[in-house]
Amino acid sequence: MLEGKFESASLMKRLVEAIKDSVKLCNFNCSQTKGITLQAIDDSRVLLISLKLDPGCFEGFRCDKNLVLGLDLESLSKVLKQGNNEDYLTLIAEDAPDNLLVVFEDPKKDRISEFSLKLMDIDSDVLSIEDMDHDCSITLPSSDFAKVARDMRTLSESLQILVTKDSVKFMASGPIGTGSVIIKAHTDLKDGKESIKIDLNKSVNVTFGAKYLNDIVKASTLAETVTIKLTNKIPALFEFKLQGGYLRYYLAPKFDE
């Protein structure tokens, strides 16, 4: 039996909103030691999502037997919208489940709502992603990155990212003209989360599809900062750290013809 209780429903609500536009059907893997993990690839095979919710992400977590919960994220989103952000959220499944039980309790315990969601058999490819060495790592406020990704998409379908020792340059070029945004490394002593950190082994020049970057920045509601790991000509990693877990996106680059 699986019983995972979140201190507040808002984490799951934000997670599902962040990924449901990229992937529709996902297998949630549940185990006592690993908690809940998920790997899903978008239909175009360009963007991969990897989620880890350690047992420590939960107020209470119990999973007697490893389980795979195949869920339609559209449906899960509909159910999660029924609960308030500050409600307790508990996910419950039997050992060979046909359904996932989703229970919301308001903190005053005078309202309990229960939903049963049908599970699906989902046949999906799982890719083996080893820890990669990257040419550079950038950590910046997730809202800053979201703004650049959204703004630059209005200029072009592609966003070029150039990283040097102390700055990151985002460039877009399209039918109406060109644009660039330069972000410089700095340390904010008052608020560390506002700092911009660049670790560089080698300068990087990579291009990504703006559409995918706009999907990725939907996760900026989950973490105040995002870490972007880039290497020339290989997929980039975008990581949003959660308390006791992470949401990672791997994005295949675009190459010049």
Partner: peptide, 14 residues
């Protein structure tokens, strides 16, 4: 113009 690559050309299936 630039071509979109696929993750499948970088990562193997498990």
């Amino acid at each position: 113009a630039s071509n979109q690559t696929s993750l499948m050309s970088f990562f193997g299936k498990k």
